[in-house]
Design a protein around this nucleic acid. Sequence first.
DNA 1: CTGTTAGCGCTTTCAG
DNA 2: CTGAAAGCGCTAACAG
Lengths: 339, 339
Amino acid sequence: MKKLTLKDVAKQLGVSTATISNAFNRPDQLSANKRTEILEACKEIGYTGPNRAAQILRKGQSNIVALVLADSLDYMVTDPVANTFIQGVSRVLRENQKHLLLYAGDSDSITDVVDFVDGFICYGAPRNGALSTQLNQQSKPVVTVDFNLEGRPAINIDNEKASYEIAKAALRPGDRAAILGLRLIDSPSTCRIYDSPLLDAESSITHRRLDGYCRALKETGIEVATDWIWNLPENAGMYAVQAAREVLQSSPRPDVILCMSDIIALELLQCALTMGIDIPGELRITGFDGIEEAARTRPYMATVCQSSVEKGMEAAKLLLSGDNTSMSLPYEIKVGETI
Amino acid sequence: MKKLTLKDVAKQLGVSTATISNAFNRPDQLSANKRTEILEACKEIGYTGPNRAAQILRKGQSNIVALVLADSLDYMVTDPVANTFIQGVSRVLRENQKHLLLYAGDSDSITDVVDFVDGFICYGAPRNGALSTQLNQQSKPVVTVDFNLEGRPAINIDNEKASYEIAKAALRPGDRAAILGLRLIDSPSTCRIYDSPLLDAESSITHRRLDGYCRALKETGIEVATDWIWNLPENAGMYAVQAAREVLQSSPRPDVILCMSDIIALELLQCALTMGIDIPGELRITGFDGIEEAARTRPYMATVCQSSVEKGMEAAKLLLSGDNTSMSLPYEIKVGETI
DNA sequence: CTGTTAGCGCTTTCAG
DNA sequence: CTGAAAGCGCTAACAG
């Protein structure tokens, strides 16, 4: 049995195509009676409504929102921070009957979808920088998160300030301090940064975090050499373990280690405990993000809690509202038991 | 500046629309020279290729695959098992230039997307049973995972056998045993099942797991009353904590607790350790799934490892291949340190 | 309130 | 290899 078209149905019911269309899309254009009559008849003969593909072309609207993630879905989908963000987004989209298309930030271009999605939420700077340009050149709404695109509304937290505050809480004068950073330089593996050229030093949030750490360090009278700053290419346990081992085996060992994510901090904590290091007696650790697992761990991780769910919800709301107003979301310093 | 259409471009370049279309879609229809010449000219004037919305309508193909999850995205997106599955799916889709649309299993219907997606991967029985019917009635390819749909290819592991084996490994004659189950009955909160009507007893994989446990229990000469079987509505820590408390406070306390997921088992382990219970001396625990966190925990969880990444990859491959052959994937019993 | 009609932008036959 | 033309299925303006 071939799929029914609106035209078939109109013929069968002996009314015009406009009437069928209106019955589904514009209730005000026909009497309530006629409408329910038509809708029932449609149900009876198995017509579930106008073909969406045709609607998309005709209306220029698909009810699909693309969520452009910073990196390949492969990485992103297992990152707990990204996940809670997606959770927030999906909650609002669902309320508004929109659908969610996941788009990888290392894709070649957005041309595959730009013609039919209703808008973009861009979570973090796409690994492929060309996407940023393309996103900005097209005319559909874009909301950026943890990242800025000229002229587009953005949602952020104050990463510099948050990092400054958590570092201040952890540091004591005379400390030896190390930093486990994220995407500070362009390297495919865990390594110390030395004087490698910095990656997106102007725009990336991890550089803002570094700025915050550095301000706190300076104020406390502590210097950190670039061989005490590690770079992880991705926020994944596997890279964190390597960095954790390297830093814990340094001699002399640092008194404080500032980590740019909870994943990193947790892995470090695990390593340290295994080595029999007393936390926070011999070593203080701070994280960033406030993921659930960080709260489950004993001792509780000192970290910056940002509500990713809310971030996601706000991003989706902002996109759907069409507003062009950026916003800065609150965060919370959780002192925990590791400093 | 208005967006260019294929027609505009054809006029500007002084060729027919068919030629432009062919240049983009069917290289064999024109000389290589002409083709690159056209493609370059297009790039120059800023035409990135045929409008996708129109292509979708015309070709009946969108390169979008819908992943129908068992429940709302809200729940699913933070479930580590689901996430690794999505990871697998996305990896294969990306290789094949397909895009991923996440679809909630508690949606009202699939009509919003059925007209334009190229196919469906259905991960677990959708909470809204109507979706199953609709999926089966439409003509686009469907692959089911951890679940069966008449006439459609399915990917599963042998849940009954795996559960039997892990239970056998954990049980000793004379044990008192309890079960922490998942979606066995229709209840919105954690509770014992007693003799509530079972939910999808025929088709659900958690009932297969229960079958496996029961076979092992019987063989070992152990009886488990229905007030020693708990039901969790979702695979989430919050429900697990409640069940864990209830079961650990039972008196006499069980010697073995069989959990239908690692999330449940981990939460139980945590509770037990907090209460000072010796694992496995005073209490043995088994999980199911083999999530990463279960391997990070000390003592290591005894569990059934199934590779969700592979499941996802196989599901996507199967969908794209158009084959109609179901498959059963291997699993591995990991004895761990909790039994 | 209903029917007619011109496209939305493209693909693909078909004749040249 | 090219150009003309018929739709894919629908919506919305317009005239009745």
